[in-house]
Design a binder for these strands. Structure first.
Lengths: 143, 143
DNA sequence: GGGTGAATCAGAATAATTCCGATTTAGGGA
DNA sequence: TCCCTAAATCGGAATTATTCTGATTCACCC
C-alpha cells in the first residue's frame, strides 16, 4: 500500500516529465495519507519525520509544482495559510468560519448539475467545487 | 444614492450594535461601490481619497468586524491576499487560476438545489457558494 | 559512468496581516 | 447639551507566511 501510493506518484510525475526526487515522493505521500487538508508547514513537519533534512522552501516549491500539474489542489479556507489535498474524486467542502476546519462533503446531485449557460463566455472552467461556509458542531457547542 | 447606501450601512450597523464611525462608513461604501472584489490594500487606497488619514490597520480591523457580523464576505481566491465583497444576493464565482481575477456568476438552478443530506451532521451551513476554478478568456488568449 | 539542467538547501528578504501603547471619539446617560 | 467610558483609531513596530538567492547536489539522458 505504501509502495502502491509511491508507484502511483512516480507514474504521474513521469507522465508530466517531473523529476522524481525523494523529497517530492515523501511530500506527496504525506499529503495523500493525511485527511486533514494540511498546510505547508504541517506537511513540512510530517515529512521531516521520514526525511529530516527537507527544507521548508522545498515543500513550498513542490506544492506549487504539483498544483500546477494538477496532482494536488489548494483548498480555499478563510485561513491565512494555504491548505492542500491530493486531486481526487469529486467532493466538496464544509469550512468552519470559526476554527477553519475543513470537512469533505459528497454531493452527487450537484455533480450531475450542468454548469450555468453564461460560464462558457468567461473562460474554461475546470472543477466546480462547492464551498459551504458555516459553523461546525464543535464550535457550536463551545458557543 | 450615496445617501441611500450610507443609510443602509448605518441601519445595519446599529442593528448589530456596531459603532458608526466615518472610517467604517467609508470602507463599507467603497466596497459596495466596487465590483472588483478588492483587497484590503486596494480598499485602503480608495478610502484615502475621501478620508486621507485612515490607517491600513483600521481597514483590516473593520473588514474583519464587518465579516464577523455578516455585512461583507471574504472571497476565497488562490491569491495570497484576502479579497472582499458586500454580502448581497446569491451569486457564485469563477476564479481564474492564472490571473486570480474573480467573475460573478448567476446560477439559479444551483440556488434551488437542496443541500446534501449529510451536511446537517457537520454543523450549521450559512451560504453555499460555488467556486468555479478555471482559466479566463483573457489568459486563454495570452497562451 | 559523466555531463547538465533542474532540484535542493539554509538563510535572508519580502509582503500581508496583526499587535501595541497612546490618543481620539461615538453613543448612552445625567 | 455635556460628560464618561469603552471601543475605535493611529502610526509604527512585530509577526507570520511565503518567496528569493546563490551555492551545492542530484536525477536522468546519453
Amino acid at each position: 500500500m505504501q509502495t502502491e501510493l509511491t508507484d502511483r506518484f512516480i507514474k504521474m510525475a513521469r507522465e508530466r516529465k517531473l523529476k522524481v526526487t525523494p523529497q517530492r515522493v515523501e511530500i506527496f505521500r504525506t499529503l495523500a495519507l493525511s485527511h486533514e487538508h494540511p498546510s505547508a508547514e504541517q506537511i513540512h513537519k510530517d515529512v521531516r519525520e521520514h526525511l529530516p533534512a527537507v527544507s521548508l522552501d522545498t515543500v513550498y516549491r513542490t506544492l506549487a509544482t504539483l498544483e500546477q500539474h494538477g496532482l494536488i489542489d489548494r483548498v480555499n479556507t478563510s485561513d491565512d495559510r494555504a491548505r492542500y489535498e491530493v486531486h481526487d474524486h469529486d467532493h466538496h467542502h464544509f469550512v468552519c468560519v470559526k476554527c477553519k476546519e475543513v470537512y469533505d462533503v459528497e454531493w452527487p446531485e450537484f455533480d450531475q448539475l450542468p454548469l450555468p449557460a453564461g460560464v462558457a463566455d468567461l473562460g474554461l472552467p475546470m472543477q466546480p467545487r462547492v464551498e459551504l461556509k458555516g459553523i461546525c458542531r464543535k464550535c457550536q457547542q463551545q458557543g
